[in-house]
Amino acid sequence: MTTPALAIETSGLTKRFGDMAAVDGIDLAVPVGSVFGFLGPNGSGKTTTIRVLLGLINASEGSWQVLGRSMPDAARDVLPDVGALIEGPAFYPWLTGRQNLVRFDAAGPDAQRSTRRQRIDDALARVGLTAVANKKVRAYSFGMRQRLGLAMALLRPRQLLILDEPTNGMDPQGTREIRNLTKELAAEGATVFLSSHLLSEVEQICSHVAVMSLGKLLAQGTIAELQAAGGTKLRVETDDAALAAQILERLGLAELTVDGTTVLARLDGHRPEDCNRELVMAGVGVRSLSAIHPTLEDTFVALTGEGFDVAR
């Protein structure tokens, strides 16, 4: 099998619950080797998308491929290479952590029995659960369960890891560990598809981002591409703000705002040096002039319109 360029590709993927489209015709493209942040407020359809991707629920419309294979038909061939954590971990509370891993490993025909012990030990060590491996999961804290869930996703070497809000409910220490683990996995060559409603998380570890809102995919690309799409702004400090605004408007800059001695406007491809020349030639006293690159947060807010509130 030749390595496909995209680890996940969807076209027009739609899932309706009754009348409401929880996922509304999205076209995702997750490049192989990327750490892909799937960003969106609560209820925007991230988990639903992941469920469809893994074949847990039927799509209403659209088609999708995982690791280059059409799903859900190729599930048997694709799933061994996919590790997943979906909407929080789930275990049998009356079994120990290790017994749980054995149970899930044995649930698929792909897992080799002879290497099971070793693989489980490695996975437990990797998430730092070796010490409590023989305790009943009933006695685990939420963070411990989340780690065990990750261990489950890491029971075999995976080409793709789908992690749905993996740091949910974890302490800062755990969050940091997960972040490092994700980076490690990516360095080993796995594609990581990480959904989150936390911008900072995505910003810190992801190479690519997609933004969901109300079931729609608003934007996707590398972090740099998205920032650029948000629009660089020009900021001018001057003694004659009104005149400066007039000149900039004539130059064709949009979204002009005047606040005391400060003028803000979207650059939209204009060069700041050209603007500066025009202002000076018109006799505007320029105290300072700078191009401001937006943060991802600005982009996010601009795209979703409402920030991090639950959309519906």
């Binding site: 469920r51 997943a84 979906i86 909407e87 899930f104 698929g108």
Partner: peptide
């Protein structure tokens, strides 16, 4: 959901 993301069908 975890049993079903194992490739057993």
């Amino acid at each position: 959901r975890y049993l079903l993301t194992r490739p057993s069908g």
